[in-house]
Amino acid sequence: MSPMINADDLDRIFKNLDKKNEGAVGIAELHGLLGQIGVHTTPEELDKFVGRTTLDYFEFLFFYEAMVKASKPEHEHEQDLRRAFEVFDLNGDGYISSEELRSVLSRLGLLDEKRGGADDCKCMIGVYDDNSDGVLDFHEFKNMMSVSGFRK
């Protein structure tokens, strides 16, 4: 995938994949797209990586970003992750709270507060919060953003 793809392009790609207009794309559609762009994986590998049978729009955007970052050399990848982490760590304390995540995602227009945005942020933090302290440190953030199991 090209890092030159902008948000409008990603929106169109998602809508084209979401043929049933359900607000989600399945593993089969995602697998087909990846095959078309030269990322070879099995549906089983993709299912294991994604960890669910469908991705909503927000999850699709994170998936795309993770794929782009995975294609960079390790030192560039680490620097990009550090910069991204700093964007979310609004108070500079070395942790991303659900409130900070909600604030940044809201400002980016990626979170619908009327549809339980704050709860969604707590859930996202909870999935990757290895030590169950309610926040993400850089290592946990890095794990959240990492991609494995894909071959070009």
Rank of each mutant, 00 (worst) to 15 (best):
A24S: 12
G92S: 06
L108V: 00
H31S: 01
F49L: 15
G35S: 03
D119L: 01
A118N: 12
E86G: 06
K20L: 05
F138M: 02
D112T: 05
M67I: 15
K48C: 05
A24C: 09
L33D: 05
F141R: 00
K20G: 08
K114L: 01
E100R: 02
S98Q: 11
D11K: 12
L17F: 03
V50C: 06
R83M: 12
D137K: 02
K72N: 10
S97I: 04
I96D: 11
A70K: 08
F85M: 06
E29K: 05
L55P: 06
K15W: 00
V87E: 15
F58V: 06
G126S: 08
I13D: 03
F63L: 11
H31P: 00
L90A: 09
K19H: 05
K114V: 05
N131L: 12
F88K: 02
G51A: 14
K19M: 12
K142A: 09
T41P: 01
E86I: 09
P43R: 14
R52C: 06
T53R: 14
T54G: 00
K15V: 00
H40I: 13
I13S: 02
D130S: 13
K122D: 14
I96C: 07
S71L: 09
R52H: 03
D80K: 04
D119W: 02
L55M: 08
F49Y: 15
A84F: 02
L34C: 13
M67N: 05
L90Y: 08
P73T: 04
L61K: 13
E45R: 11
K19E: 12
S97V: 04
L111E: 04
V25E: 01
H77N: 15
Y64R: 05
L105S: 09
T54D: 03
D119A: 07
A24Q: 12
P43E: 11
G116H: 00
E45Q: 14
S132M: 10
G23Q: 05
L105T: 07
K114S: 09
A24R: 13
D120V: 01
L46T: 11
F49M: 14
D11F: 03
T54N: 07
V25D: 07
V50L: 11
G32T: 04
H75E: 14
I37N: 09
V68F: 11
H40G: 09
G23Y: 09
L17G: 11
A24M: 13
E44A: 10
F14Y: 10
K114D: 03
N21Q: 13
G134E: 02
Y95Q: 15
Y57A: 12
N91S: 03
L110P: 11
F60T: 11
D93V: 02
A70W: 06
T53D: 15
H31E: 07
V135P: 04
F88D: 05
M124P: 04
R107V: 09
G109P: 04
L105V: 08
K114A: 06
K114E: 05
K122L: 12
